[in-house]
């Protein structure tokens, strides 16, 4: 028997000895593992993981008063008429209520370029809430990600809103909370600008009608994108999905879609006055799907060109057949 063969063969006693050692080793490893085992596991960040639910800000529907379309070049007059056709601001905002207004303040660009909500329009809606409806407080919010202070200032919305008596709430980490939208695949445990909405009674969205390089159009539904925190650019890969889910997440009191000047090309930033076309149309609606379906026509698009509208209707958020709602219309001189 050579040396190699010797090492290969063991006796019965040695076998049991080695087995016993192996069992002891395994047992010891198990005991040590048990000592280190943390039954609770890593603890969640309590702030990050505190899931919230957005209040339902919508109001009871009234036949023939779901959507209004007003033709006119003057935004202040148009929006007054559009709201009046739906029953007046008092239908939407009650005395003593707290209102959150969500304009599009996504960019630090001048108002004339139409990339952001028009400051005069925002100011007029604030005025209506305070003076006509008797709102207790009006907050104006958006989360432009990049330098919110510059966006609010250079868009002219800060000056217009504060002059009208509203308070601007800038995005800040403590005001964000995670939300999971029922039946959503994208908005799960995702941070949103929740703080100002938590105690609000009513929510009004004010958005311009814009071309959007990724989604085709940016209107009332896309405007809620500004409530998202985190690295929301990841959603650009599924832009139709995220716009649909935003509409599932938010149940606004009223949306105002400003098609007075429409950004026809190079959206959502634009950059040139030649990207704009005068359409002199103001849309107010309790059904944001209907509002966007009406608004997309100003961009020369059909509902079928914007998959998120079709999806939103499938989810029962609203109707793309806005004409079926018997829209209230008016043309201002």
């Amino acid at each position: 028997m050579n040396e190699q063969e010797k090492t290969r063969h063991i006796g019965r006693r040695e076998f049991f000895t080695r087995t016993a050692k192996a069992v002891i080793s395994i047992g010891a490893a198990g005991v040590i593992s048990r000592l280190f085992y943390d039954k609770k596991g890593p603890q969640r960040d309590s702030k990050a993981e505190k899931l919230v639910t957005l209040p339902d800000f919508s109001i009871l529907p009234e036949a023939g008063k779901t959507i209004s379309v007003v033709k006119g070049a003057d935004r202040v007059r148009s929006v007054n008429k559009a709201i009046e056709l739906l029953g007046g601001i008092k239908r939407f905002v009650k005395n003593g209520e707290t209102v959150v207004i969500k304009p599009n303040v996504a960019f630090a660009s001048p108002a004339m370029l139409g990339a952001t909500s028009n400051p005069e329009l925002v100011a007029e809606v604030i005025r209506l809430c305070y003076k006509e409806a008797g709102a207790k407080e009006v907050f104006v919010i958006d989360n432009p990600i990049n330098d919110p202070a510059s966006c609010f200032m250079l868009s002219g919305i800060e000056k217009a809103a504060t002059s009208a008596g509203a308070k601007i709430i800038m995005p800040a980490p403590p005001l964000f909370a995670n939300i999971t939208v029922k039946d959503a695949t994208l908005i799960k445990h995702w941070p949103i600008f929740f703080g100002p909405l938590e105690k609000a009674d009513k929510l009004i969205g004010i958005a311009p009608v814009k071309h959007h390089q990724r989604s085709g159009a940016s209107m009332a539904m896309k405007n809620w994108y500004g409530l998202l925190g985190g690295r929301r650019n990841t959603f650009h890969q599924n832009i139709n999905g995220i716009i649909t889910e935003l509409a599932m997440m938010v149940k606004p009191t009223l949306v105002i879609l400003d098609g007075t000047m429409v950004m026809m090309t190079n959206g959502p930033t634009g950059g040139s006055l030649s990207d704009l076309k005068r359409a002199n149309t103001m849309i107010a609606s309790c059904d944001m799907v209907a509002a966007d379906s009406c608004g997309c026509e100003l961009l020369g698009k059909k509902v079928s060109d914007l998959p998120y509208l079709v999806k939103a209707q499938e989810y029962g958020i609203g109707t793309t057949n806005w004409q079926s709602l018997n829209p209230a219309t008016a043309t201002l001189e």
Binding site: G41, P42, Q43, R44, D45, A48, E49, I145, N146, N178, K188, H189, W190, P191, G229, G230, R231, N233, T234
Partner: peptide
């Protein structure tokens, strides 16, 4: 991974300019 409070990419910070 959200069970462990890591809700990437929702909580990831974007590099500042």
């Amino acid at each position: 991974i959200r069970r462990f409070g890591i809700t990437a990419p929702s909580l990831q910070l974007t590099p500042k300019p």
